[in-house]
Amino acid sequence: MIRLALWGLMIASLMGFWRVIIGPTVPDRIVAADALTIILTTVLALLAVDFGNGIFLDIALAFSILAFADVLIMAKYFEHGELHR
């Protein structure tokens, strides 16, 4: 069952990867990369259930925190053209 969910998320992440490379402007790529981080966090939670091991969940939480900070930094950089304003 979980393997089926992993297959679906794999196809979704491939479509997001397509948008990351093809995307005509920078915010397209940012949005697609944000979607990829969400998918990856979900995959980590599913792996934790599959292996019966709670270790993956700590990694997933820390990863989602870092991804959130990442998106905010990219948004700020993009908003003013420079990072410091």
Partner: peptide, 16 residues
Amino acid sequence: TFLLCLALGWQFWKGI
């Protein structure tokens, strides 16, 4: 890009 996605998907398939 399509070929790159295919290669990545093949790696994912092997991984799963």
